[in-house]
Amino acid sequence: MKEKLEEIEELVNEIEVDILKLQSLFSNFLKKHLKGLIIENYIGEYPTFMEPVILGEKVKIGDDVLIGPYVYIGDNSEIGNYAELSNTIIFDNVRVGTNIKLDNCIVTKNCKLNFNNSNIKNCILKGIANSEKEVLKIYF
């Protein structure tokens, strides 16, 4: 699984992302490599998980959060209160603000979504943003 994730991470970090290749790798990772419920080491108070969900180390999860199905969250990432995540890969050290809904997204390493109340679909998210306008979005 790690190898597949590295492959996706490498691809999303390229200056010009090969969207067709990404779509195929992303869908293959979510549907074939992401399995079960690996959630042992999160920090938070019992969010809702719909498997498959795999969490890395020290993932912080806020109140009333809904995670899944088909979600991977990397080490040290932080998910704000009332967030909803499905069909999404979040890499390490990411921050997702309060009441943000992500579906079919890839959030790159160290990305900070420091804003609240958004519904974002079908894109790669990059950068440190204090409003939705500031996020670099690449639709796929």
């Binding site: 419920l37 108070e45 809702t48 719909m50 498997e51 199905p69 088909y70 069909n87």
Partner: peptide
């Protein structure tokens, strides 16, 4: 099998099931 851990919610709702079957 598919497991849904509802955390602090006391029952499944249609949104949970819809999310599973649409995927």
């Amino acid at each position: 099998t598919i497991q849904i851990n509802t955390g602090r919610e006391c029952a499944l709702n249609a949104y949970h099931i819809y999310q599973i079957i649409k995927n």
